[in-house]
């Protein structure tokens, strides 16, 4: 399954980068969302994929039955998902604010107000 997932990750990244390179600022937001999803899948896949063995320990035992999925990347991704949400909210509101102030959604026009 890994090669397929690797290709999927690559496609997600390509989609994300393409969207982030658009001039419309709304597309940038979509690109950001795709990027965080792609990154999560990247970590998830590179740690190796395990089917049907969640990192849980059965009740009354001290260690899991047999091989389980690597819990560490899962922990990392879990926080990453929540933070990505926070960052997305920040980005969306920032963009909204910027739009209200300078009234353009074209990234190339936005640079004019730098100075």
């Amino acid at each position: 399954m890994e090669p397929i997932m690797a290709i999927v990750v690559g496609l997600l990244y390509a989609a994300a980068v393409y969207m982030m390179l658009r001039r419309s600022i709304v597309k940038l937001v979509i690109g950001l969302m795709l990027l965080s999803n792609a990154a999560n899948l990247l970590i998830f896949t590179s740690a190796g994929i395990t089917r049907g063995a969640p990192p849980l320990i059965p009740e009354g035992m001290l260690s899991p039955d047999g091989v389980v999925a690597d819990p560490l990347p899962q922990a990392l991704i879990l926080t990453a998902i929540v933070i990505a949400f926070g960052v997305l909210a920040f980005a969306v509101v920032l963009i909204h604010r910027a739009y209200n102030i300078i009234h353009t959604d074209n990234l190339d026009h936005m640079k004019d107000t730098d100075t």
């Binding site: 009740e59 879990l78 926080t79």
Partner: peptide, 12 residues
């Protein structure tokens, strides 16, 4: 701490 769940999920 024992089953799927925890602070992040519960908060969400």
């Amino acid at each position: 701490h024992d089953e799927p769940g925890g602070g992040f999920i519960a908060g969400l």
